[in-house]
Design a protein around this nucleic acid. Structure first.
Length: 672
DNA sequence: AGCACGCCGACT
DNA sequence: GTCGGCGTGCTC
């Protein structure tokens, strides 16, 4: 077979003498049933260049397409006549066996296609970079001092394990005020000193800059490679190649770096894993935490899932015993934390000062800010983003209103002009809820939760007329502010680091953050609060935080007591009770009604599968039909793999294919 | 997705 | 008799 002359061979070509069959992953966005390699013949002139992992050009359905050569074999199972490998773009073996295995694991985990994952994992080629990218690693760096890790229980032994090459895995809660970039840099340098590679992934560019500064300080400019999304294509590919060739021991970056082909991975870390930016917004939507846990597992590497806050997913890693906790003693936490005060909207003790009244500031907040400014320190004012999102909560206890059938979020179907009141409906299963009863307090009253109102912050300037007000937000983000009296008004996530720490932080509109119509509203609010509060001086140095939210709420209590682990544990238990990820695995399938129907007919779903919906997405026509709808399928965690597999298979059946593609997302937290 | 092969109505 | 409708199936 292998020696036969293939079709379309105009010039006479001879197949390579050894292993002439190339298994090729074609890189074309095609339906799921083509998610498999195809065999081609290697002509003898390409024999030496056509190495496993290299990029090739092949003829597929008559057209020349890009692909990756996965392996060379003696024979093929294909019955027909093989085509030739037309060209080897470069003998650089970019798709290494390890990367291929990772991409396969990720594709399987998310029910996606291998080629899609490979497309995320390997940056576009740039020929010049192949010449200029370094090949040799620098000398081993010295092992860094790590006294700062001694503030955490088992911190020293964790670093010891990293140095010894053991697969220690930890959920890390950074102390308030912690210089987390330096701690992560120390852990990475510890792995590098032992001759192993390290990979740290952070949410955004600002975090990356801080981390890079910390790594450079410890390892020198050439000791660390930063893979940032905003690099020019040639620089991006050159740095990626340096990693691939083993010239870089410590690799840092934003989410695309989760696939970086680090050699001998000994340590991996994800910082602030609750940040949505860790969710890759392209099919199959992999998450940094998932990919790094997978990689740490496969490579036997150490892992840190860290942040000031803790996600329910991290709590599950700890509670399942897969990872252990890396936390400080309570006395150290108390010593490092600012004093936190919660002011609910009901204790409406507005300040007597007329200016503060105009800013709608309670007296506690006003006094905290004034005393910090008086002490010469800047004050942070965190204001939730603007916008209006319809959502419903219990009219009495303010618990989010959930569907009694599937626990999906209740909302008022909006957009109708006739003004006739419509009953609340579930955004998942579509069931109307005419007789709401709060599962928490039994109340039958519903209230709307509105998101918005950043005006308060603008009015602050009047309350403190002699203090400069600076803003930091989406448009322009301040990296740092000096230790001088100033009001720093910012949206969550854009908080500048203050030299010497803020004297106080005012966390405004807590209710707005908590009332967002998302599964993770409370977790996210707490994460954003911790991130801001961690920039404030310890209580012993006068540091104060005032959060405008009801002190009886659990996330608020967690902030007051500075106990992220406690809240994450509660959150995980609640998700388990309601049947949400990570306690259970949930898939969201979007598509036109025919395609959804075809999937339901043909999919061989796992035994515990619970099908919710479909519900219309977007505009609904006069007959109540929608162009697109969303189906929710949830299963026990143990069947997550089976769910991904059956959804992958179902997309390949002809009927579903005909009705155009379906979009499948696993554990799409931001959609719930 | 494209593109070929394939079995039934109106034309030269 | 033939040209061509786009249903079904394949792509190494």
């Amino acid at each position: 077979m292998a020696g036969a002359q293939p079709k379309g061979a105009t010039a006479k070509r001879t197949a390579a003498a050894n292993r002439p069959v190339a298994r090729v992953l074609v890189d074309v966005p095609l339906p799921v049933h083509l998610d498999r390699p195809f065999d081609y013949l290697v002509p003898d002139r390409l024999d030496t260049d056509a190495v496993p992992g290299c990029r090739v050009r092949v003829r597929f359905r008559g057209k020349l397409v890009d692909g990756y050569l996965l392996e060379r074999n003696e024979t093929t199972d294909f019955q027909g006549t093989l085509s030739w490998v037309e060209r080897v773009l470069s003998p650089e073996p970019v798709l290494t066996p390890e990367l291929l295995e990772l991409a396969r694991a990720v594709a399987t985990r998310y029910g996606g296609m291998l080629a899609d994952v490979v497309r995320l994992a390997i940056p576009p080629r740039h020929a010049g970079a192949e010449k200029s990218a370094p090949r040799e690693p620098g000398p081993l760096p010295p092992r860094p001092a790590a006294e700062a890790w001694a503030r955490y229980q088992h911190g020293t032994s964790f670093l010891e394990a990293v140095h010894a090459g053991r697969s220690a895995r930890a959920v890390w809660q950074a102390l308030p005020g912690e210089n987390w970039p330096s701690r992560l840099a120390e852990a990475a340098a510890t792995a590098a000193a032992a001759g192993r590679g390290a990979l740290i992934v952070v949410p955004d560019h600002r975090d990356l800059q801080r981390l890079q500064d910390a790594c450079t300080g410890l390892l020198g400019k050439d000791g660390v490679v930063a893979l940032a999304a905003d690099l020019a294509p040639s620089a991006r590919y050159r740095r990626w190649l340096a990693v691939l060739r083993g010239a870089a021991r410590v690799v840092i970056g934003t989410r695309a770096a989760m696939f970086a082909p680090v050699h001998h991975l000994g340590f991996a870390a994800v910082w602030d894993d609750g940040d949505d930016l860790h969710s890759y917004p392209q099919v199959p939507y992999p998450h940094t935490r998932d990919v790094l846990t997978q990689r740490a597992h496969a490579a036997g590497a150490a892992l840190i899932v860290g942040g000031f806050a803790r996600t329910a997913e991290a709590a599950l890693l700890a509670e399942s015993g897969w990872a252990h906790e890396l936390v400080a003693h309570r006395t150290d936490v108390r010593a490092a934390a600012p004093r936190v005060t919660a002011i609910g909207e009901d204790d409406n003790q507005l300040a007597r000062d007329p200016a503060a009244r105009a800013a709608r500031l309670p007296s506690v907040a006003f006094e905290a800010a004034r005393s910090a400014l008086g002490a010469g320190a800047p004050v942070l004012v965190q204001v939730p983003r603007r916008g209006y999102v319809p959502a419903l909560a219990c009219g009495d206890c303010r618990e989010r209103a959930r569907c009694r059938r599937c626990a999906g979020p209740l909302a008022l179907p909006g957009g109708n002009e006739d003004g006739a009141p419509k009953p609340a409906a579930c955004r998942w299963c579509g069931a109307a809820e005419a007789a709401f009863k709060c599962s928490s307090c039994g109340s039958r009253r519903l209230r709307a939760v509105a998101v918005g109102a950043s005006r308060t912050a603008e009015e602050l300037g009047r309350a403190f007329s002699n203090v400069p007000v600076r803003t930091s937000g989406a448009g322009e983000i301040l990296p740092t502010v000096p230790a001088k009296p100033a009001l720093i008004v910012c949206t969550p996530g854009a908080e500048p680091v203050a030299e010497g720490g803020y004297g106080a932080a005012l966390l405004l509109d807590g209710r707005t953050l908590l009332g967002r119509p998302e599964l993770r509203a409370a977790e996210t609010a707490l994460r954003l609060w911790f991130a801001a509060a961690a920039l404030v001086r310890p209580a012993g140095e006068g540091g104060r935080v005032v959060v405008m939210a009801d002190s009886s709420l659990q996330p608020v209590q967690a902030l007051v007591r500075w106990d992220p682990a406690w809240f994450a544990s509660l959150e995980l238990a609640e998700r388990a009770q309601l049947g949400f990820p990570p306690a259970r695995r949930v898939a969201a399938v979007d598509g036109i009604p025919e395609a959804i129907e075809a999937l339901l007919d043909s999919a061989d779903l796992p035994a515990t599968a619970e099908v919710l919906g479909p519900v219309p997405l977007g505009e609904v026509d006069e007959d109540g039909n929608s162009e697109r709808e969303r189906l929710i399928v949830r299963v026990e965690r143990s069947e997550g793999r089976a769910l991904a597999g059956s959804l992958h298979a179902a997309q390949a059946v002809r009927a579903a294919r005909k009705a155009a593609e379906l979009q499948v997302r696993l554990d799409p937290l931001e959609l719930l």
